[in-house]
Design a binder for these strands. Structure first.
Length: 769
RNA sequence: UGAGGCGUCGUCCAACGGCAGGACUGCGGACUUUGGAUCCGCGUAUGAAGGUUCGAAUCCUUCCGCCUCAGCCA
């Protein structure tokens, strides 16, 4: 399993491309960068596994780095906890780093920024800086200190370091652009004064770098190639690149990528809320088995392997999504099923007397730890005429499909005999206090008296079982989305921890070592509590119940959710687009565009929509003009430009393309003259955009000239059918939807140069349709 | 409102112009000395509209919806 190929995702695609391109010399270095201000949880597990997994997959390295740039909230206790958690989950890292180890280098980088005019010391108060930042739709304003001489900023910055200013008196800011559309880029803070004791550097520093300055530098110092973080840092990437671009050169030059953080049903995964649960004592500490922390899950009995399987199950993408908790539970059960020996315990005992049992007789059954694989060993299980069974397994008034004990009914004792309930003992208040049963001595063992349809229940011997508390953990929240409510504590499950104080274990479980796991037959998976359990005085935690198809039929969660909000087509049709409006506004202030907008419609006879699309940007309009000058077919020039060229050019402005407007016009002329098929046209255009050249010459060089020769088309069809023999057979057998595949293959054989209708006709004839 | 990102079965993830697939859940069945496990079967999903194309989840346009950003937190 460990060697199974990990599924690919958008990150592996990026890295595949990087490795193929030889970027960073083919190296792959990742990092997991926690801030030591809390304990790791399941969300971090996804990130850890991702970073460790990527490093392993590409033969690279992964570092553990503590992002300890804020002395106010960070503690050594968390450093130690996090190291233990990461090691438990993912094993060893290549190198251990602390951001604080880089403080001197970061400071030198900051001085360089100041010297080169990219940063300045701002002596304003926090409130002034905040007000000057502007808003999403309103540019900010410059600080009065923005243009103070570099030498003055440098002196101030050095005095900040020397401790000559109080907290908040001044800050170091990047000089970028207070009107930047990305608010993050409006002269962000780089350093602040914080006269606090740091858990590693003590009182050496009184200025500390901000995340946006420190993080890219830490990555660069460590030689990280792929810096993977969560989606909310997308806006910060621009600043990440800004910092590195001004302080390089770097080798490797790190790049930041973002993925969607994990969100899980019936669970909260936010440090703040988890901390609140702990401080308000809603749970018993960070390692309470109900907590989604690594420490809690470890104590709950969940294994690192289960977590790895889960991470693989949910994948990695950029969609914000909430994973069904059932998926998590599936991963846990699947893992535990394979590793837990099975034994018996009774949580809520009900005495059962076997009236037909010889008085005083005690028999010892050798029962397999793994019923389906008896060769893996057995344990002795004592049995007498006085047993204990689960109270839930008896019903005075059973439903029709009841398979357990009921008055007059029979059931098999797991690993033992079939018993029949002859008499029910009840207290004066009606409570059932015991059962009297008769047993069939011939029903023990394989095949002997086997009876179909009989239920099986677990049991322990009354005198020879051992009492032990068993903690029954359940979901911490009753709402699937606790975060959705104003107060997530309202969704706390009052029954998330129930203790079975009267539980009895079969003797073999009494000596379990802390951390030992077992399946308790029919009840679930349990672990001897790593902290509180002792051999001889066991305490068990329930990791998870068994899948239960019987009880779940009672309370059925509704499968169908509220329909996704749909857009209203009628409204869509009548609404004018914002982008369209933006283009109209640009035309209103740009006569050159307005003039073209009208001319395209009148002189060139273009539809209004096309004219609109072409006149939102002067560069596009000019490119179009040049093309039309070279080839008068305005409508098809417009169509090819808008539908194909814009897609192919991507981020590159048209003016910077290898293919000039004139060349593009020449290209469209070829298409319009019928020298090229549309498919061939697309292939040629892609080539021209990628590598330039003269259209007609490239067309000939690439062999894209339209093929009309029937013989050539027939040959292409033959080659396609030969290559797709299996699909062709399936098509002939009736899978008509495969025509597309066969046609596609034939078109490719003809390099897109053949007329599609002709190929289709030839193909259908050849297939005997 | 400015910028950035994301929309595919109930849920999560694939499909990179050519057969919309896998996993979870649910349902049904087989088997069973765990109502477990195992095995088999069952799918009304591409947010909407328009365009390009022989062919669109995928390319273009427009609209709709959701998420993130205005800490001297990370």
């Amino acid at each position: 399993m460990a060697d199974a190929p990990r599924p690919s995702n958008f990150l592996t695609e990026i890295i595949d491309a990087d490795v193929a391109a030889g970027r960073n010399g083919g190296r792959v270095v990742t990092r997991f960068p926690p801030e030591p201000n809390g304990h790791l949880h399941l969300g971090h597990a996804k990130s850890i596994l991702l970073n460790f997994g990527l490093a392993a997959r590409y033969g690279g390295r992964v570092n553990l780095r503590f992002d300890d740039t804020n002395p106010a909230t960070e503690e050594v206790e968390f450093v130690e906890g996090i190291e233990a958690d990461v090691r438990w989950l993912a094993g060893d890292w290549a190198a251990l780093h602390f951001a604080s180890d880089f403080f001197e280098r970061m400071y030198q980088c900051a001085e360089r920024l100041v010297l080169e005019g990219h940063a300045y010391v701002d002596s304003q108060a926090q409130e002034a800086i905040r007000e000057q930042r502007g808003a999403f739709d309103r540019p900010g304003t410059n600080s009065p200190f923005r243009d103070r001489p570099a030498a003055e900023s440098l002196d101030l910055f050095q005095r900040m370091r020397a401790g000559q200013f109080a907290d908040g008196a001044c800050v170091l800011r990047a000089r970028i652009d207070m009107a930047h559309p990305n608010v993050i880029m409006r002269d962000p803070l780089l350093y602040r004064i914080r006269k606090a004791h740091h858990h590693r550097t003590g009182d050496t520093w009184c200025i500390y770098p901000m995340y946006d300055f420190a993080h890219p530098l830490e990555d660069a110092f460590e030689g990280v190639t792929h810096s993977i973080c969560t989606l909310e840092f997308e806006s910060n990437r621009e600043l990440y690149d800004w910092v590195l671009d001004r302080l390089g050169p770097w080798d490797p030059r790190p790049r930041q990528y973002e993925f969607a953080r994990l969100s899980l049903g019936y669970t909260v995964l936010s440090k703040r809320k988890l901390l609140q649960l702990v401080t308000e004592q809603r749970v018993d500490g960070w390692d309470d088995p109900r907590m989604p922390t690594l420490a809690g899950m470890r104590r709950r009995g969940i294994t690192p392997e289960a977590l790895r399987d889960f991470a693989e199950l949910i994948g990695v993408a950029k969609n914000n999504s909430t994973v069904d908790i059932g998926k998590f539970e599936f991963a846990i059960r699947a893992d535990l099923e394979g590793r837990c020996p099975k034994a018996m315990a009774v949580l809520d005992p009900l005495p059962l007397t076997i009236t037909t049992w010889p008085a005083g007789k005690v028999e010892t059954l050798e029962l397999p730890w793994w019923p389906s694989e008896p060769e893996r060993g057995t344990r002795p299980v004592p049995c007498s005429g006085q047993l204990l069974v689960e109270r839930d397994d008896f019903s005075l008034d059973p439903p029709a499909d009841w398979k357990r004990l009921a008055p007059g009914g029979s059931v098999r004792l797991a690993g033992g005999w079939v018993v029949r309930c002859d008499e029910v003992l009840r207290a004066s208040d009606g409570t059932v206090t015991g059962l009297r049963c008769s047993h069939d001595p011939a029903s023990l063992g394989d095949g002997a008296g086997a009876r179909r349809g009989l239920g099986t229940i677990h049991w322990v011997d009354a005198a020879r079982s051992v009492p032990a508390p068993v903690r029954l953990y359940d979901r911490l929240f009753t709402a699937e989305q606790p975060d959705a409510a104003p107060d997530f504590l309202a969704a706390l499950n009052p029954a998330s921890l129930l203790v079975a104080e009267r539980a009895r274990l079969e003797p073999a479980l009494a000596t379990a070592a802390p951390g030992d796991r077992h399946q308790f037959l029919r009840l679930g998976y349990f672990i001897a509590d790593p902290a509180d359990s002792r051999p001889g005085a066991p305490v068990f935690n329930r990791t998870i119940t068994l899948r239960d198809t019987w009880s779940r039929t009672a309370a059925q969660p509704t499968q169908r959710r509220a329909a996704r909000p749909r857009s209203d087509p009628a409204a869509d049709a009548t609404l004018r687009g914002r982008r369209s409006e933006a283009r109209a506004e640009r035309r209103a202030v740009t006569p050159a565009l307005a003039e073209r907008y009208l001319r395209y419609q009148r002189a060139l006879q273009l539809a209004e929509e096309l004219a609109d699309l072409l006149t939102g940007d002067l560069a596009v309009a000019e490119y179009f003009d040049a093309a039309v000058k070279a080839h008068a077919g305005a409508a098809s020039v417009a169509r090819w430009l808008l539908n194909d060229l814009l897609g192919l050019s991507g981020e590159t402005p048209l003016a910077q393309l290898q293919l000039s407007g004139t060349g593009f016009g020449a290209f469209v002329a070829l298409v319009d003259a019928g020298k090229l098929t549309p498919a061939g046209g697309k292939a040629l255009l892609a080539d021209l955009v990628a590598s330039g050249g003269e259209p007609a010459a490239r067309m000939k060089a690439l062999g894209l000239e339209k093929v009309e020769d029937a013989g050539a088309i027939a040959a292409a069809v033959e080659r396609a059918l030969a290559a797709q023999a299996a699909e062709a057979a399936r098509y002939r057998a009736g899978e008509k939807k495969l025509l597309g595949v066969l046609l596609g293959a034939a078109m490719r054989e003809a390099r897109g140069a053949a007329d599609a209708a002709a190929v289709r006709k030839a193909l259908l004839e050849r297939l005997g349709a």
